[in-house]
Design a protein around this nucleic acid. Structure first.
Length: 674
RNA sequence: GGCGGCGUAGCUCAGUUGGUUAGAGCAUCGGAAUCAUAAUCCGAGUGUCCGGGGUUCAAGUCCCUGCGCCGCUACCA
């Protein structure tokens, strides 16, 4: 028997969980693990929060608490979210614990000793007031690309581009507000290219990996591996284990995946056997399976395996990395910043957590992005669960109670239709098993609901309500067979509905200690049913309408961004700008660009070429003849091989854009603006 | 522009290595039934499988091309 370590991506401890997280990395893993446990496999399910990095320490400083407080707070919130929907880890740790510190430092030391670490100096922003390097989010300034004022040191929130902090215009230290200086700093790099061949060979053995994962890795490998910095100038994190460098910490992406191991070590200690973790991590037969979202593919298939390969200890390498695609919400991509999301704790408050499990399982983004649609959520629950499965259970139970005082016996003769049904059930059992084994949760749920449909069909065909009047014995066969079908479903659906199915089994007076093999043994005893209440209650239209309203209300409330005023300027400053009316005479698209238009304008005889990023909002032919406002004396700039001599003014709001035009057409070209 | 993905019934999607008359659920219409949470069951379907070309005895599936949409990326003076 092989052992399994199943992990889900470590959630970052500075925010809550939303349904996209669940659908991608947690629910599929949880279902897989519950399935393996049903099969009595030796499996541990490991996770924990990722607690270091700049965003957490910045939030901490903003709130005047310690980073640890932030990490602890969200660790608890995230855990509550998981509990609410029944995601059950064998261990849920965090990366700010001693075990993890030591292990991460050991990882670094081994890599260093084995020649996989190099040192480089580079330029970074340094605040002389706070005496520290301003990594990533510790600095804000004007985005060199879009001009957005709140751009961070690593990325601009407005245009989404990655930024080299030294390129920021008017950078400001987030702590004191002073202007930082550019200073050299030293960083340690992981020499990824040295692992190139080894990685290629290893990945070559992974032909069974999901197609999307394989494609992603190959394009990464082909574009060439580069050395990657694994240290940061921060206080919050795991200190670099090299003397005299206590101002450096290991970068989160380096240490976070090590959390899978340290969480397992913690688990072993809790089990009272400190070395137990080695039996999993150091056995080459262990199947290490990482469930992640698609954004995590390179880390888990290239960098993390490289880290493992560079160790003295023989750690097992990932066996499989089933990466899921994204879950959209009502047709649009989930977005935390725009508040376009459904939070796990909130949905679990309004609906049964297992409804959420079912819907997300039935719509898992396994091969492509899928969509969470509230109306569809309601439909799935009401039709599949309440009407099909719930009703099957309900009609069988009430029938047995009503006509047989809650007790029926094994039938003596089996009808053809019963045989047919039981054979279909056997086939479905095999198919469901294959699906679970291959992370195909979506198909598994569909198959099980199909079985419930077959049950209803069989019940209708046999018409026990009629037969019971003439041949009570014969009618009991139908009930007995349906009872068997329900028993099968109670096992098949346990990975998805652990609670509901155990409730169902309790009503059926079935043993609470059961496993997958029980699917092969037919019940032959008399059965007595217990107390029964409907398994699934329907979701009313009103409830869904409320949710939809809430969703859009959130969106609106977030859309209103505060207007941040700029510093006052002198009239002279304004006078410096030469703004004039120009007429557009020729427009053509720049082939290589989606947004840029090349515009030729007439400035009272003089002609100028301007590039403008308005191709998404205006068609070239609609622009010709328009009189617009242009900044004339802006320094010319080359873009996409063309020289732009000025800037056409436009108002923007999100995707909307409008050129500034005149409300009196008779004004001359070249008229100044003042 | 580069890389990747997608385009199948009104809607959400299945469609394995090319192989009979292209499927499921929902919604719609008609019927049966009354054990059951008005639940269930049966029947009816509607399709230029995005367009065009090609390979093949055979294409939703493979190749080329055009269009449309999405994601990442570059671009936004």
């Amino acid at each position: 028997m092989s052992k399994y370590i199943v992990t889900s991506a470590l959630p970052y401890a500075n925010g809550k969980l939303h349904i996209g997280h669940l659908a991608g990395a947690y629910l599929p893993a949880d279902i897989f693990v519950r399935f393996l446990k049903l099969k009595n496999e030796d499996v541990i399910y490991i996770c924990g929060t990722d607690e270091h990095g700049a965003p957490i320490s910045i939030k901490a400083e903003a709130e005047g608490v310690s980073p640890k407080d932030i990490a602890n707070r969200y660790h608890e919130k995230i855990k509550e979210g998981f509990d609410a929907v029944g995601i059950e880890f064998d261990n849920f740790s965090g990366t700010d614990r001693q075990i993890h510190y030591k292990l991460s430092q050991d990882f670094f030391k081994d890599l260093d000793k084995n020649g996989f670490i190099s040192i480089k100096t580079s330029k970074q922003l340094y605040c002389e007031h706070d005496k520290k390097f301003l990594a990533d989010r510790y600095v804000e300034g004007i985005c060199p690309f879009c001009g957005y004022e709140g751009a961070r040191g690593d990325q601009c929130d407005n245009c989404g581009k990655l930024i080299d902090a030294t390129a920021l215009i008017e950078p400001k230290c987030m702590i004191c507000g002073n202007t930082p200086v550019v200073k050299e700093t030293t960083h340690w790099f992981l020499d990824l290219p040295k692992f190139g061949d080894k990685l290629k060979n290893w990945i070559g053995t992974k032909s069974f990996w999901k197609d999307n994962v394989h494609k992603f890795i190959m394009s990464w490998l082909e574009s060439g591996l580069i050395e990657r910095a694994i240290t940061r100038d921060l206080k919050w994190g795991i200190p670099l284990p090299i003397e005299g460098n206590d101002d450096k910490v290991l970068y989160v992406w380096f240490e976070a995946p090590i959390g899978y191991i340290s969480s397992t070590i913690e688990w072993a200690k809790n089990q009272g056997d400190d070395d137990l973790w080695k039996k999993y991590w150091m056995d080459e037969n262990t199947k290490l399976i990482h469930f992640i979202g698609k954004d995590n593919i390179p880390f888990h298939t290239i960098i993390w395996p490289a880290l493992l390969m560079g160790q003295d200890k023989n750690f097992v390498l990932p066996y499989d990395v089933p990466a899921n695609e994204y879950l959209n919400l009502e047709g649009k991509q989930l977005s935390t910043s725009r508040n376009w999301a459904i939070w796990v704790d909130e949905i679990a408050k309004d609906f049964d957590g297992e409804y959420v499990r079912y819907y997300l399982a039935a719509n898992a983004p396994e091969t492509k992005d899928s969509d969470f649609v509230w109306k569809d959520f309601q439909n799935s629950i009401n039709n599949d669960l309440a009407n099909v499965l719930g009703n099957l259970a309900n009609r069988v139970f009430t029938f047995i109670a009503k006509f047989y005082d809650g007790k029926i016996s094994k039938y003596s003769e089996v009808s053809d239709s019963a045989l047919e049904l039981l054979n279909s059930a056997k086939k479905i059992i095999r198919e469901v098993e294959t699906c679970y084994q291959n992370y195909k949760v979506r198909k598994a749920t569909k198959l099980i609901i199909d079985l419930a449909r077959l049950g209803n069909k069989y019940f209708d065909e046999r018409k026990p309500w009629k037969m019971v009047k003439e041949n009570k014995e014969g009618a009991s066969e139908t009930l007995y067979v349906c009872y068997q079908i329900l028993e099968i479903i109670s096992i098949l659906f346990t990975p998805v509905f652990p609670k509901k199915m155990s409730k169902l089994r309790a009503s059926m007076n079935l043993k609470s200690d059961f496993n997958w093999d029980d699917l092969c043994t037919e019940i032959t005893d008399d059965v007595t049913i217990g107390e029964f209440k409907p398994l699934f209650t329907k979701i009313e239209d009103k409830e869904i309408d409320t949710q939809i309203e809430k969703l859009f209300a959130n969106l609106k409330s977030k859309k209103k961004e505060k207007i941040v005023h700029k510093e006052d300027i002198e009239f002279d400053d304004f006078e410096k700008m030469e703004l004039r009316i120009v007429k557009i005479i020729e427009v053509e698209k720049i082939k290589k660009s989606k947004k840029l238009l090349k515009i030729l304008v007439d400035l009272d005889g003089e002609k100028r070429t301007v590039l403008s990023g308005i191709a998404k909002n205006y068609k070239p032919k609609d622009l010709i003849g328009k009189k617009v406002v242009m900044l004339i004396n802006l320094k010319p700039k080359k873009m996409m091989g063309e020289l732009s001599q000025g800037m056409i003014l436009a108002a923007t709001n999100g995707d909307k854009l409008s050129l500034l035009t005149l409300d009196r057409e008779d004004l001359d070209i070249g008229s100044p603006i003042s």
